[in-house]
C-alpha cells in the first residue's frame, strides 16, 4: 500500500546520464538506506519521486500513484529535501502553518511537530538565525506534519550534532516500527549502519545493490575469525592441516582468514586445543561499501 515503486527511472542532464534505469521497491516497516557517493544520483531520484524533477524515462510511484496526482500529499508522504530550503526570514511556526493549512492539517499539529523535533522553544526566532542543525529539525518537522505513512529523507543527519544524530536515528527506527515506509539517503556509511535495515546502493546513477544490511556485508567480506589460545603451536598445526593460516595480531591474539568462528570452534574442540577467546570478524558497512563502489566514485581523490 505504501510501497515506493521505481521502474526504469532515468534522468539526463544534457548529455550526462544522472540516473540510469533504476528499478527497485521501498517497503513499509523498514528503514531503507539510499546510499552512494556524492553525485551518484540519490537526490535526483528523490526529487523525481516527488515530481520535482521530470524523469527522462521511467516512473516512480507511491502506493501505486504518482506523487503529483495526490490530493493533500502531506498526509501521505513527508519529505525532507535540502535543509537549506530557507523558509525565508520568517519564524519556524509560520512556514509550517502555511504547509499545514494547504493540506487541511489542524494548526495544533504544527505545535506538536515543533515539540517533537525539539525546536518549540525557538519557534519564534527568525529562521535566518537558525543553525544548520535547527534548520534540519525544522525540515523534519515539516516532513512529519501530516503524520504520513511514507517518509523520504535526504541526508537527514547533515548538520546534526551527535545528540541530534542519535535522536534522528531513534526517530527513524520508531517510524519504521510503526509500519511506515522510511527511505533515507546518506553518503555516510558508518553512520547509516546504525539505522538501516535494507540498502539500496547507487553509483553513477546505476543500481549497485538492493539487499538487506546483513546480506550486503556478508557478501562483501571474506570470513575471518579471531582467537586467543594458550597453545598457538597446536592450533596452527591443526589449521594448517585444514589448509588455513594463523597470523599474529597482538600478544597471544591471532586471526584466521577463510573460516568462521563456528567452524573454528569445532575444529579446536576436535583437536582438544583450549580457546580463551573466539569471535567472528566482520567487515563494517563502510568497508563493504567501499569495496563495492571503489571504481565507481566520480570524484575520487586518489588516482586509480
Amino acid at each position: 500500500m505504501n510501497r515506493i515503486e521505481i521502474r526504469e527511472l532515468t534522468k539526463d542532464h544534457g548529455a550526462r546520464r544522472v540516473v540510469d534505469h533504476l528499478t527497485f521497491d521501498v517497503l513499509p516497516g523498514k528503514v531503507t538506506g539510499f546510499l552512494g557517493p556524492n553525485g551518484a544520483g540519490k537526490s535526483t531520484t528523490m526529487r523525481m519521486i516527488l515530481g520535482l524533477d521530470r524523469p527522462t524515462a521511467g516512473t516512480a510511484t507511491i502506493g501505486g500513484s504518482r506523487f503529483t496526482g495526490l490530493d493533500r500529499p502531506l498526509r501521505q508522504v513527508g519529505a525532507l529535501l535540502d535543509p537549506q530550503a530557507a523558509h525565508g526570514g520568517r519564524g519556524a511556526r509560520d512556514p509550517l502553518l502555511a504547509l499545514a493549512v494547504s493540506n487541511g492539517i489542524p494548526a495544533s499539529r504544527v505545535d506538536e511537530v515543533l515539540e517533537q523535533t525539539g525546536i518549540a522553544a525557538v519557534a519564534r526566532r527568525r529562521t535566518g538565525t537558525f543553525s544548520l542543525g535547527m534548520r534540519q529539525r525544522l525540515g523534519i518537522a515539516a516532513a512529519l506534519l501530516g503524520d504520513p505513512a511514507v517518509l523520504l529523507l535526504d541526508e537527514p543527519t547533515n548538520g546534526l550534532d551527535p545528540e541530534g544524530i542519535i535522536w534522528i536515528r531513534e526517530l527513524m527506527r520508531s517510524l519504521a516500527a510503526e509500519g511506515r515506509t522510511v527511505f533515507v539517503s546518506s553518503h555516510l556509511m558508518a553512520e547509516s549502519a546504525s539505522f538501516v535495515d535494507h540498502l539500496v546502493v547507487l553509483g553513477q546513477g546505476r543500481l549497485l545493490a538492493d539487499t538487506s544490511l546483513e546480506a550486503f556485508i556478508d557478501a562483501r567480506s571474506t570470513p575471518r575469525a579471531r582467537l586467543r589460545t594458550s597453545e598457538p603451536e597446536r592450533m596452527a598445526a591443526a589449521l594448517a592441516r585444514a589448509g588455513l593460516r594463523m597470523t599474529a595480531v597482538a600478544e597471544g591474539r591471532w586471526s584466521v582468514d577463510g573460516i568462521r568462528a563456528e567452524q573454528l570452534g569445532s575444529l579446536a574442540a576436535q583437536e582438544g586445543v583450549p580457546l580463551l577467546e573466539l569471535s567472528d570478524e566482520r567487515a563494517s558497512l563502510e568497508e563493504a561499501y567501499l569495496e563495492l563502489t571503489a571504481d565507481r566514485t566520480p570524484f575520487s581523490a586518489t588516482a586509480a
Binding site: 526529487r47 516527488l50 515530481g51 520535482l52 506523487f67 503529483t68 496526482g69 495526490l70 500529499p73 502531506l74 508522504v77 519529505a79 529535501l81 535540502d82 537549506q84 530550503a85 530557507a86 523558509h87 525565508g88 512556514p95 504547509l99 494547504s102 493540506n103 515539516a142
Partner: peptide, 14 residues
C-alpha cells in the same frame, strides 16, 4: 529562493 519551491510543491504538487 533556496529551494522553497520544492517545499511548497511537496504540499501542493500541482
Amino acid at each position: 529562493r533556496g529551494g522553497a519551491l520544492r517545499v511548497s510543491l511537496t504540499a501542493v504538487p500541482n
